[in-house]
Design a binder for these strands. Structure first.
Lengths: 352, 352
DNA sequence: TTCATTTCCGTGTGCGGTAACGGAAAAAAT
DNA sequence: ATTTTTTCCGTTACCGCACACGGAAATGAA
């Protein structure tokens, strides 16, 4: 059953009245086969249900595949670290097929850096590419380059509207915002909600968290039409300024019980503030499993995190490319939306 | 890097001053090698970092592995259906290595049926076994039989206290009950809680949901010491009796707002009742992703489900055995606790 | 010392493909 | 009709390993 069919290329050759060399030529579309033979061989393959033994195939072909993964660079404990872990998992899988995986990093706030990285990847003539896109136009350009070279590529994290990608693995961003709002409000009578945002979240970048914020706001306006939403901007690089801004936010309203949300992975900024100020009266929800976010969750400064297993996304992306290269199989679905995991202090320790 | 090291058995042979036949003999511990040569070869392998090419290995050895999975039989839409899906995923993976997977089912309420299944599995002389245990003593006996035959086995869903298993994949049952209580109470002022139980959940079976209930009760007594817990027993096979019992439960207390929980996968029984009676005032939490549970979640008769991806457990189990057989690699961790997923109406559609 | 055993090891074949190589047959050019 | 070119295909040498086979060296028995 399944792979148990023991039909070899020799069986096909015999049945078609040719040599296995000829069969191999049609299998790989290497030409030099008459139309008649080709047709016959194809028919025999069909009838016999021949499936090449891909061990033998890998063993015999000395091809040297390698896959490049283009992701933002990061510091310890930041969001993209988990993605890199997923790349490591993927590397293990692909390694079994003799495929090398390399991660190419770029500065997600520097367009030049991204273009540079793209150029380097193209130069290395990869067999396949995994991209976590940040710059819309430049990524589309890069995607075009890849398509022209017939290099398969997979998007992770977020995707663009081009059509040539092999697969996409990411979170449904809008829904994640919607879900986040539900968890934040939690059936309570919410009158005001604070969205903490990163001051420099702008530029020409395609920021997926905007979509998330839209989902969040939609939920609120549907379920809490009279709820006020207040945006507060903080500077990720300046602690003092963050405290100032947040102090001001708390000072502006006497009610100590606040609903706070961050749409990116940096909710630990808020948690740090609350911890330092000894404020335990807020309900805070954020995204993504960073070590600092988990700590805040355990200590109770953050009530819930919505996570997306971005490691699995990366691993799945590499698996998809690998299977495509080795088995010539495209993934079952092109667009794959990762599940959204709700973490609180009671289940977070069992996450992964 | 990684698998890229191109050291072959020939290199080892040359470096050790023997032939590849001898190297092969020590690699497989087939004997007929002098202690001196063996030592030398082992040293060389170490130094060179030789890793056998397992394609070539599989190709050359005509071994025919097969893995048996021992799980309870089920009807459509029941809990174990998801496990079977996971077996299918595992089959795909193992199939690539020429390993056959067969599922052997037993009646989880019939000891004889289980023993029969065990005997059949043993007779088929499997290369490895995956077990979802239900009967403690008999499973231990079976485990002993497997150990004696040097057949690796993996537990899924729940495990026993023997020591010979290769790995375990399952949910932390106690924690899941604890988590469930947190989600059910949700910070509210809960005075009374209804646990709905299956009437015939007894016998000599090792029922993991007992542990879960313990976690649930512990949470309540820690966080809501004054909360009363009421157990209600329903009959899974008798609709009329279920309605009677639940009617009585609702009649006994005028407060229509009830906290209800089921510790097994059958919360849809409660949902069916609530739907029919048009009761929308309860907060209901249950376990596991059955289609009927999901429907109840979407319609709002159940507020949350705690899920455990039992498909992944099965797939991981098969992967573990496969890797053990093919790559001679034991899984990184012996006990693997699956994450507990919290599902509500907003993220359930993205589950899987 | 000689012959029978054991112990130990090298050689060779094949697993199912890949792809280079070279040659026969067919088509085109002269 | 002969030569050149093209088209098409069979042969063959691996790929890295598993394992059967047979033989040399070492050991034991006589």
């Amino acid at each position: 059953m399944g792979e148990g069919n023991k039909i070899t290329i020799n069986d096909v050759a015999k049945a078609a009245g040719v040599s296995k060399g000829t069969v191999d030529r049609v299998l790989h579309d290497r030409g030099e086969v008459s139309a008649k033979s080709k047709e016959k061989i194809l028919k025999v393959i069909q009838e016999l249900g021949y499936r090449p033994n891909f061990y033998a195939s890998i063993l015999a072909s000395k091809k040297n595949f390698h896959i490049s993964c283009l992701i933002p660079e990061f510091n310890d404990g930041e969001f993209w670290e988990l993605t890199e872990k997923g790349i490591d998992q993927g590397r293990e899988y692909a390694g079994r097929f003799g495929i090398d995986i390399s991660a190419v990093m770029y500065d997600q706030y520097d367009l030049d850096s991204f273009q540079n990285a793209c150029a380097r990847v193209l130069d290395s003539a990869p067999s396949g590419v995994v991209i976590a896109p940040m710059f819309r136009n430049e990524t589309l350009k890069f995607a075009k380059d890849l398509s022209e070279r017939h290099i398969p590529y997979v998007y992770i994290d977020s995707k663009l509207e081009d059509d040539g990608y092999l697969a996409y693995y990411g979170m449904p961003m809008y829904q994640s915002g919607y879900l986040c709002a539900d968890i934040l409000t939690n059936g309570r009578d919410v009158r005001k909600l604070h969205i903490i945002r990163i001051a420099r979240d702008k530029r020409g970048l395609s920021d997926p968290t905007i979509t998330r914020r839209t989902g969040l706001i939609d939920y609120i306006s549907e379920h809490y039409p009279e709820c006020r939403i207040e945006n507060t901007f903080i500077d990720p690089k300046n602690v003092a300024s963050r405290y100032e801004v947040l102090d001001a936010m708390f000072a502006a309203d006497p009610d100590p019980f606040k609903y706070i949300v961050m749409c990116n992975s940096r909710v630990h900024f808020v948690a740090d503030y609350l911890r330092d100020r000894g404020i335990r009266t807020c309900r805070v929800v954020g995204f993504d499993v960073l070590e600092r976010n988990l700590a805040a969750l355990r200590e109770g400064y953050v009530q819930a995190l919505i996570a997306q297993h971005s490691d699995r996304q990366a691993a799945a992306a590499i698996t998809a490319v690998t299977d495509y290269l080795i088995l010539h199989e495209s993934p079952a679905r092109k667009d794959n939306y990762t599940q959204m995991d709700i973490l609180n202090k009671y289940n977070c320790d069992y996450y992964i």
